[in-house]
Design a protein around this nucleic acid. Structure first.
Length: 873
RNA sequence: GUGGGUGUAGCUCAGUUGGUUAGAGCGCUUGCUUGACAUGCAAGAGGUCGUUGGUUCAAAUCCAUUCAUCCACACCA
């Protein structure tokens, strides 16, 4: 044997070491075998803002399981890793860090800032990659990408220019979401809503002809400075006469028109709405229908502009107070109501969004959304679980144009250039274009692109697009995307339309959606709550395998999962169990035993029983993995290894393992090693480290379990008869143990066993099992038992008698037998009523009907034996 | 307001196409220093599968209803 296992399972002894070996040997790279089908995954790039959290751990565990599985199945497998520059999030972090040094962005300028940002990326980007390696992620690091690297820039420019030329990118004035703290626009998807208690102020606006006033209500009185009209519904009888008249804007004195627009709902409030086109998306629409001027009343940091000297410099909330006070003093304020309404806040910093009219770059979404909707509708792109299709379709069908310009420095700079001389605008991939008309150098747009603009290209930009690379032709479209449901709208939807538009192909076939990781109380893990668990701490304490196992177990697609250390402990205990089973095997086998072949001609029943179940396990695990039922697959492996292999098989063969030199001994060794080795392979995608460490110590062919062949079902290894026979034996042993425990018989007290059975062939040569596992001192298999004062243990195929007069309590025994009789009769009744039902007989499948018939004979036999036992008492 | 999820043992959750007596881990009870493992072994208690109705030979599973709870999207000034 080349090496031994340490007595104690200590994952840190070998996890890092194995990882470096795999990496050095190049196992993470595609096999390059073009005769084999390709399998590819592109990793959702973690943000470089900080470090890996439990969500990443889950995401990458799932991807690694799929990747390792497919690799072992022979696919030409590629998993591309990378990180995301996360423009707004990272920029905010850097600004924050600079604040501590007393610096602002303006102090150090664009170049200086970008230098810092790249430095940040060097440190944090590298750290994230280290963490991914700790998890055991088998990605091809030689293909590592960054959303802001040269290749991605190339792709971004290409896309921007193409879309611009197609008329799908335009620059225009629209209402955008402005964050007064981050000082940038954000897209609709980046706005979160929060219910806040506010007020509803009712204000009167006097008619300019002195004939009265209109009454209207607002939640944001400070925006009245920017009112350029008042609107009513054209069908509102109350106001028909004043349409076309003018009102005088209180505090400002400006005359503004009364317009009519369907947008106004007659039943809400007073039926009159103030129109502030520069600060409200609906008002903007009304404004453009009626050619109303845009009156922007706020600065970038949400203070009132100098155009309104009385309020100039006040921030929006100060101004609100001052304006309410002034309205009240001027007799314009009629009443104030409490009012709860939802307020948009910035998803990064939580600051209340200020909608404002602004000149920005947009992507025209409708033509792009159409094919993307179709691709999901017709099943070309499949969501797992299916229900997330609805989220996606709902978003795509109601999509609005995408505001892509950001007033940030950290990101892809917009490839648009302006000529200060003649006002010419061009969009180009060139670095320093010159104006064709004036011949002077042009000025590049200072803005950068929404971080998701580059993320949207990730599945193909990482494979070399826009160049037509070999990777593109082999690995694109990718096989599956694994991500959380929280970014379906942000990211998944944008990749789908981008892929279809630019490459003409979908970016991936399947989208495997997972849920969020929550704390033990079901709360979201977050920095502010301080309830997050650091995956690295868990790995240090329990090992990466235990962490991965925990994340894979009991996790069904799309559902959230609570995380707590007790679960990881259970996983670690499982690893420990496996470790010790392996140690046991190693101390009982000889050098010449094969893990790759098994001679079925010399196997005993228990060997066949195990092999047969293992064979079935192979089929099931493969099926589950193919259907992305990772949690089900892993729990089957757990059950097989612990409850079948360790609890039963190892115990069953212990005696044989001491009989060195016999055929039966060799057969047991062979079975142990063969099944263990294969099971390790089945488990390897889930627990890569421990399976490799153990596999290396067992007899094996090949250099690594990682690149070994995933087991396949072998028809000759099915032994239904042996399975049934051993089931009978195991049931009998359990029944005996059960009875002894019930009667408080100490384990040290051995008893003689008489077994009367209708299936003697099953009990043939099985006496030893009862001696060691059922507290028997001697086993007699006989058809006639004439004993008084015995305990009877009744199973469907045997009656077991234990003479134990001195222990048995007759009354207790009678009670127990009566209970057993009731159970049997209940079951008989159930089965009989089914069989009495003509519909059941005629409509249920034959298999099901037969099962019921078998039940009848089984419980009839039990009932009769119990009755007899009762009589004998 | 629209859409969706979840509800199964004390706790956290599985449960594949509807098909034996509904499972696991943790916790609990009892007994074990069993030559792989006390990070363990054996035995056990604990569930009217949220409610009500329907479909079906058969429902935790499908349909409808209702309650509870969570989420997403949309919001009327």
């Amino acid at each position: 044997m080349q090496k031994q296992l340490n007595k104690k399972y200590n994952p840190s002894d070998f996890e890092d070491k194995l990882y470096s070996e795999w990496e050095e040997k190049g196992y993470f790279k595609p096999s390059g075998d073009k005769s084999k089908p390709a399998f590819s995954i592109v990793m959702p790039p973690p943000n470089i803002t900080g470090q890996l959290h439990m969500g990443h751990a889950l995401d990458n565990t799932l991807q690694d399981i799929l990747t390792r599985y497919k690799r072992m199945c022979g696919f030409n497998t590629l998993w591309v890793p990378g990180t995301d520059h996360a423009s707004i999030a990272t920029e905010a972090k850097i600004v924050e860090a600079m604040k501590k040094e007393g610096l602002t962005k303006d102090d150090i300028g664009r170049e200086g800032f970008l230098q810092r940002a790249w430095e940040w990326n060097r440190v944090y980007g590298a750290r994230i990659i280290e963490q991914l390696k700790k998890m055991g992620s088998s990605c091809d690091w030689s293909r590592t990408r960054f959303t802001l690297d040269e290749g991605c820039s190339e792709a971004v420019k290409e896309v921007f220019v193409r879309l611009y030329e197609k008329g799908l990118i335009y620059r225009g004035i629209r209402i955008i979401n402005w964050c007064p703290h981050c000082l940038t626009t954000i897209s609709d998807a980046e706005v979160e809503y929060e219910d806040q208690n506010g007020h509803f102020w009712h204000i009167r606006y006097p008619l300019s002809d002195g004939s009265g006033y209109v009454l209207l209500a607002t939640t944001r009185p400070e925006t009245m400075l920017g009112d350029t009209a008042v609107a009513v519904n054209p069908n509102d009888e109350r106001y028909k006469s004043i349409i076309g008249k003018k009102v005088i804007l209180p505090l400002v004195g400006r005359e503004i028109p009364i317009v009519s627009d369907e947008y106004v709902e007659m039943d809400f409030g007073t039926g009159v709405v103030k129109i502030t086109p520069a600060h409200d998306p609906n008002d903007f629409e009304v404004g453009s229908r009626h050619n109303l001027p845009l009156e922007n009343v706020m600065t970038d940091d949400a203070r009132i502009t100098d155009a309104y000297p009385k309020y100039a410099g006040m921030d929006r909330y100060e101004a609100r107070k001052a304006i309410v006070r002034d309205l009240e003093e001027g007799g314009f304020l009629v009443k104030t109501e409490e009012h709860e309404h939802s307020v948009g806040i910035c998803y990064r910093c939580g600051t209340t969004i200020e909608p404002r009219a602004s000149k920005q770059w947009f992507v025209k979404m409708e033509p792009l959304a159409k094919p993307a909707i179709e691709a999901v509708r017709n099943g070309d792109v499949r969501f797992i679980p299916e229900r997330f299709e609805k989220n996606y379709l709902h978003w795509m069908e109601n999509i609005r144009d995408w505001c892509i310009s950001r007033q940030l420095w950290w990101g892809h700079r917009i490839p648009a250039f302006y000529c200060d001389g003649c006002g010419e605008v061009i969009v180009t991939k060139e670095e320093n274009p010159v104006c064709k008309k004036c011949g002077v150098p042009m000025r590049q747009d200072p803005d950068t692109l929404d971080t998701w603009f580059s993320s949207a290209l990730w599945p193909f930009s990482t494979l070399g697009w826009p160049k037509s690379t070999e990777d593109m032709s082999i690995f694109y479209p990718t096989s599956v995307l694994v991500t959380g449901y929280d970014i379906i709208t942000f990211w998944v939807s944008r990749m789908i339309f981008s892929g279809l538009e630019y490459t003409g192909k979908k970016p991936f076939s399947d989208v495997l959606i997972h849920g969020l990781i929550r704390d033990s109380q079901g709360r979201k893990m977050s920095k502010s709550l301080g309830n997050g668990t650091d995956p690295l701490e868990i790995i240090e304490k329990y090992g990466a395998d235990a962490l991965r196992f925990t994340l894979a177990t009991g996790n069904s697609p799309g559902n959230d999962m609570r995380f707590f250390n007790e679960r990881v402990e259970a996983s670690r205990n499982f690893a420990n169990k496996l470790w010790n089973a392996a140690r046991f095997i190693l101390m009982n086998i000889e050098n010449d035993v094969s893990a790759d072949e098994i001679d079925i001609s010399v196997l005993e029943d228990e060997d066949k029983w195990l092999l047969s179940q293992y064979n079935c396990l192979i089929t099931e695990v493969r099926e589950n993995l193919d259907k992305y039922e990772l949690g089900i697959a892993v729990s089957k492996l757990y059950d097989f290894i612990w409850s079948i292999f360790c609890d039963w098989y190892i115990e069953l063969v212990k005696t044989r393992l001491n009989e060195k030199g016999s055929v039966s001994n060799k057969a047991a060794q062979n079975t142990l090693v063969y099944v263990m080795s294969g099971t390790l392979k089945l488990l390897h995608p889930f627990m890569p480290f421990i399976t490799e460490e153990i596999w290396q110590t067992l007899p094996h062919k090949g250099d690594s379990i990682m690149i070994s062949e995933f087991p396949v079902n072998i028809k000759e290894h099915d032994f239904p008869l042996a399975e049934e026979g051993m089931r009978v034996i195991i049931d009998s042993i359990r029944a005996i143990r059960n009875r002894r425990a019930e009667m408080n018989v100490p384990p040290s007290r051995k008893a003689k066993l008489y077994i009367k059975t209708t299936k003697p062939e099953y009990f043939n040569k099985k006496e030893g099992f009862f001696l060691r596992l059922a507290g028997a001192s001697q086993v007699v298999i006989t058809n006639s038992v004439n004993l008084d004062n015995t305990v009877r243990i009744i199973t469907d195929s045997a009656e077991i008698f234990i003479p134990m007069n001195d222990i048995v309590d007759n009354e207790a025994e009678r009670e127990r037998l009566t209970k057993e009789l009731e159970t049997a009769e209940k079951e008989l009744e159930r089965a009989q009523s089914k069989l009495d039902n003509a519909d059941f007989i005629s409509r249920a499948p034959e298999k099901v009907v037969n099962a019921e018939k078998e039940k009848i004979s089984k419980y009839t036999s039990i009932r009769d034996k119990v009755l007899e036992a009762l009589k004998k008492l």
